[in-house]
């Protein structure tokens, strides 16, 4: 090696800053940190046991006519309502175009294994679309003005198809992912 360089160190360093090797090293190091960040962020997602608890087989044969059962799946409430013929007729008679969130009653049902709709059984989410309160229904003796559900928090009224008819809620009660495993058992998943 030659004797000590006399020029100030900072200049030589600055000249060198754009050298390919430094850029490559920096990029690869950043890539590694980013890859680790993926693991550190992915762990916020639901764990496998939480996901396993997010699906439930429900026996619908025990739902009393004209009333409902409520189930919790992964901590979220769902309504399974056994509708009377009068309630079904009421739900189908509504003029969809006048609704805040236009949906026909058929659109809010899922086919059974033979492809037909089970009109007697309405399955909806149990969380009001306004701010997430759980509406009261036939089991609590209050079905609201439209015969479906009534949310006591801010007065949203749902009809017998779970559609929003009055009050602050913007949307109908959502229909969860569910399939008929058999004529009497539905599998609801989040």
């Amino acid at each position: 090696m030659t004797e000590q360089t006399a020029q100030p160190l900072d200049e030589t360093v600055d000249d060198d800053r754009r050298n390919f090797i430094h850029i490559a090293t920096g990029a690869v190091a950043f890539g590694g940190v980013a890859a680790f960040a993926i693991a550190a962020i992915d762990q916020w997602n639901p764990a496998a046991d939480t996901r396993a608890a997010s699906s439930l087989d429900v026996d619908i044969s025990k739902v009393p006519l004209g009333s409902e059962i409520r189930v919790l799946i992964g901590g979220k409430p769902f309504f399974l309502r056994h509708r009377t013929p009068a309630e079904i007729a009421e739900a189908e008679a509504v003029n969809v175009e006048n609704l805040r969130d236009p949906e026909t009653d058929d659109e809010r049902l899922r086919p059974m294994q033979d492809g037909k709709l089970n009109r007697a059984m309405l399955i909806t989410s149990g969380a009001c679309t306004h701010l997430g309160c759980v509406p009261v229904g036939p089991a609590q003796g209050n079905t609201g003005e439209y015969g479906g559900w009534y949310c006591p928090c801010h007065g949203s009224e749902y009809d017998t198809s779970g559609r929003i008819r009055k009050g602050p809620a913007p949307k109908n009660l959502p229909i969860p992912n569910y399939v008929y495993v058999s004529d009497t058992v539905v599998n609801i998943s989040l």
């Binding site: 030589t12 060198d16 090797i21 430094h22 090293t25 590694g32 890859a35």
Partner: peptide
């Protein structure tokens, strides 16, 4: 493999920065 590549890159980067220093 990643750590191996980073080691090699850092080695060259480090040697380059230090090349004028005794």
């Amino acid at each position: 493999i990643y750590l191996g590549i980073l080691t090699i890159l850092l080695w060259f980067s480090y040697k380059r920065v230090w090349r004028k220093i005794e």
